[in-house]
Design a protein around this nucleic acid. Sequence first.
DNA 1: AGCAGCAACTGAACCGGTTTAGTAGTTGAC
DNA 2: GTCAACTACTAAACCGGTTCAGTTGCTGCT
Lengths: 338, 338
Amino acid sequence: MAVTISDVALAAGVSKGAVSYALNGQPGVSPDTRDRILRVAKDLGWKPSLRAKGLSSAKAYALGLVVARDPSLLGTDPFFPAFIAGIETALAEHDYTLVLSVATAPGAEERCYRKLVDNGRVDGVILTDVRRGDSRIPLLLELKLPAVTLNRPDASSPFPAVSVDESAGIFAAVEHLVTLGHRRIAHVGGGQEYIHGRSRRQAWEDALAAAGLPSDHFAAADFTAAGGVAATAELLRRADRPTAIVYANDLMATAGQSYAQSLGLSVPGDLSVTGYDNAEFTQYLNPPLTTLATDPMLWGRVSAQVLLNQLAGAHQSEDTALPAPRLVIRASTGPAPD
Amino acid sequence: MAVTISDVALAAGVSKGAVSYALNGQPGVSPDTRDRILRVAKDLGWKPSLRAKGLSSAKAYALGLVVARDPSLLGTDPFFPAFIAGIETALAEHDYTLVLSVATAPGAEERCYRKLVDNGRVDGVILTDVRRGDSRIPLLLELKLPAVTLNRPDASSPFPAVSVDESAGIFAAVEHLVTLGHRRIAHVGGGQEYIHGRSRRQAWEDALAAAGLPSDHFAAADFTAAGGVAATAELLRRADRPTAIVYANDLMATAGQSYAQSLGLSVPGDLSVTGYDNAEFTQYLNPPLTTLATDPMLWGRVSAQVLLNQLAGAHQSEDTALPAPRLVIRASTGPAPD
DNA sequence: AGCAGCAACTGAACCGGTTTAGTAGTTGAC
DNA sequence: GTCAACTACTAAACCGGTTCAGTTGCTGCT
């Protein structure tokens, strides 16, 4: 049977209240009494009942992650597993758990957040895939649910943000292509409703501007393979066909590369291709994909830590910046065709 | 402020106990009184406090999933996202949540289960990646934690199992290759410590036996790309080189295919290749991969339902069988070379 | 009519912790 | 010496629900 603080109080000869103060580092007991209580609790093998703690302190000791992506996209995205693993490393140090929800149906995301709050399931949430004018920010304010966002939202947000400077990664990819002699470097963007979709495009534009090149070869897509094929088809139909394409994620790069090859184009002879995320399978493509590698595990760990600090009462005044993506050069990029 | 059952009791003119019986469908209140209580509760907008319910009923209203795979493997496996999405569809109907842990460090898996139990975090767990002599079965018995297993473990297990007959899928892949004229059909197995690793191999052997062909072209791997390359290299070094390889998962097939191509072999001209799982990216490989498609979302949903039924007191006497994988024929398989 | 059994309720205990209001003792300032 | 402020404790209330033991009234049987 579980040892309760009543057992500890009895054995230590003090009240339950004193035990609670001692065990939680609260003032109100003398140092001697505190030591005695802590020793008795340890000797008896006392462990807090998180259920009881939760009820009296109105806390869940859990963080929430609501993923609103289609599962088929998640299955090819190396980001989330590593991100979640990173979150876990932070949570394990605090006896918190991760409550995961996948909410892809229309309206499911909002219903999911409301349910988490109504049921007191989580103390805070980690917001990934931040969108322009993200409706989750006002929703979470209404629900009084603390949050941390991945990247700084475009609209005003009171929540701390953990950011990666994606510009440097895309800049490096574009520079690599410019060095290889490319002058028509296109970009197949992810969903432009996402902050990260926009920032990758902006970085592509800025890098081309720095190289004195036009940024008029842009096609929007939605991070899906089908979207990547359609965008690639659009770009390759142009009279001034690009000699290189910078894709906003690996799946689109994979599908786009495959599509170009199906047209008889050689990669990288006729068209160079870069991706984003360094998915495990990309090194085994034919040819292996040049891509950008991020550190999602670190991102997950830091995000969880920032949110836990927030919940503990610390107020983060500045966004946390993580290292930029690293360019991984493989065989999908080569000299521009003559 | 939240409406409690005390508020409902006061407004309905009955005791808290009567309210609890009425709201939980328990006997002990007359039909008239029950109706009145239910109406008052609804009018007042009463919602149960899961924290309070949890404390008094010793339940967490959550299911646990501990994933002991390396995150990089998860990022290329379409199984888990869809599986988790399927779990969610069942949980949503019961106001349960999913507590997810990723535990890859040595010993972390066991520590994770113990912590979930110590903290009363979950009412039951779903066991994926069942292994031969899986130590989790006795562990969960010791911890008195209900579970459902994916596939029937080889050792005695009191937990209900949800199974897919993988034989039919692998059988179909081998038959497809036999029909194409292949006589030396190899198998690159996943981790043979896993039940599903063994059963895929067994199915390959059985299908070859049925076709009157020898099953001596086997190489063990570990579901990783590097493992797939090494196993492929071993097989391709044989004097009696196989003309086709059935891989236990898509990542190994992708890497193996790529490796064979790097040796100057043509796929499928010199070597036909099949995978398993139908990952999104496989249709964009060069050539697109022939593979087996399962329904992980259904698997997730059914598994969660079986476990929830178990927790509700129902005792499942038979394992639940799900449909066999479906062969998806693409361009990585073709006629055997002369 | 009397008795046994059952249903319909009740109030209180319980779940295991946190916080509040109160009491007693001590210390320092005047 | 007196008073105010503080510390160190206490018992009880509270968190919001579930279950238990007890009481009352009703019904059916003898």
